[in-house]
Computed example of a mutant assay.
Amino acid sequence: MLRFHSLPPHEEARMTDHNAAALRASVESALHAAADLDATDIIVISVGSSVILEGFVRQWGDSVRALAIAEEVVGSGYVHCRLLVR
C-alpha cells in the first residue's frame, strides 16, 4: 500500500496563506517596478490563486497597463481589475 505524505489541515492553511502573501508581494513589486506606471494608489488583494487590483490610477491606460503587469505574474484570467480613474 502506497502512502503519501500530506500536511495536517492547519499546516495546509498556513502554506496557502504564505503562497497568497507571496503572490500579492510579487504583483506589488512588479507594479512598483514599472517605470511607466504610478502604482502608489493601487492595492493588491490575493484570493487563492487570483489577485484583485483596487484603487486609483490617473488614466484608463494605466489601468490596462496594471492589469497586463499583474497577468504577467499571476497568469491571464487570474486578475480582477477594479481600478478607477481619478
Results as ranks from 00 to 15, higher is better:
Met1Trp: 01
Leu2Gly: 08
Leu2Ala: 05
Arg3Pro: 03
Arg3Ser: 12
His5Ile: 03
Leu7Glu: 07
Leu7Lys: 03
Pro8Phe: 00
Pro8Ala: 09
Pro8Thr: 02
Pro8Ser: 14
Pro9Met: 12
Glu12Asp: 04
Ala13Gly: 02
Arg14Lys: 08
Met15Phe: 01
Thr16Lys: 15
Thr16Tyr: 03
Thr16Gln: 13
Asp17Gln: 14
His18Arg: 02
Asn19Asp: 11
Ala20Ser: 08
Ala20Ile: 03
Ala20Glu: 13
Ala20Asn: 06
Ala21Leu: 06
Ala21Trp: 08
Ala22Arg: 05
Leu23Val: 10
Leu23Arg: 08
Leu23His: 07
Arg24Asp: 03
Arg24Phe: 04
Arg24Val: 01
Ala25Thr: 07
Ala25Tyr: 01
Val27Gly: 11
Ser29Tyr: 14
Ala30Cys: 08
Ala30Arg: 09
Leu31Trp: 08
His32Phe: 11
Ala33Leu: 15
Ala33Asn: 13
Ala34Gln: 14
Ala35Tyr: 12
Asp36Glu: 15
Leu37Met: 07
Leu37Asp: 13
Asp38Gln: 12
Ala39Gly: 11
Thr40His: 09
Asp41His: 15
Ile42Leu: 06
Ile43Pro: 00
Ile43Phe: 01
Ile43His: 11
Ile43Trp: 04
Val44Gly: 10
Val44Thr: 09
Val44Ser: 06
Ile45Arg: 14
Ile45Lys: 11
Ser46Leu: 07
Ser46Met: 04
Val47Tyr: 04
Gly48Arg: 04
Ser49Ala: 14
Ser50Tyr: 06
Ser50Lys: 15
Ser50Glu: 09
Val51Ile: 15
Val51Arg: 05
Ile52Thr: 09
Leu53Gln: 14
Leu53Pro: 02
Glu54Tyr: 04
Glu54Gly: 10
Gly55Asn: 11
Val57Met: 09
Arg58Asn: 14
Gln59Pro: 00
Gln59Ala: 03
Trp60Tyr: 07
Trp60His: 10
Trp60Arg: 12
Gly61Glu: 11
Asp62Asn: 15
Asp62Leu: 12
Ser63Ile: 06
Val64Pro: 01
Arg65Met: 14
Arg65Pro: 08
Arg65Glu: 13
Arg65Ala: 13
Leu67Asn: 07
Leu67Cys: 08
Ala68Ile: 02
Ala68Phe: 02
Ala68Tyr: 02
Ile69Glu: 01
Ile69His: 02
Ala70Arg: 01
Ala70Ser: 07
Ala70Thr: 01
Glu71Met: 10
Glu72Lys: 05
Glu72Ser: 14
Glu72Ile: 01
Val73Lys: 01
Val74Glu: 03
Val79Asp: 07
Val79Glu: 04
Cys81Trp: 00
Leu83Gln: 04
Leu83Asn: 07
Leu84Gly: 02
Val85Pro: 02
Val85Ala: 00
Val85Asn: 00
Arg86His: 08
Arg86Ala: 12
Arg86Gln: 13
Arg86Met: 03
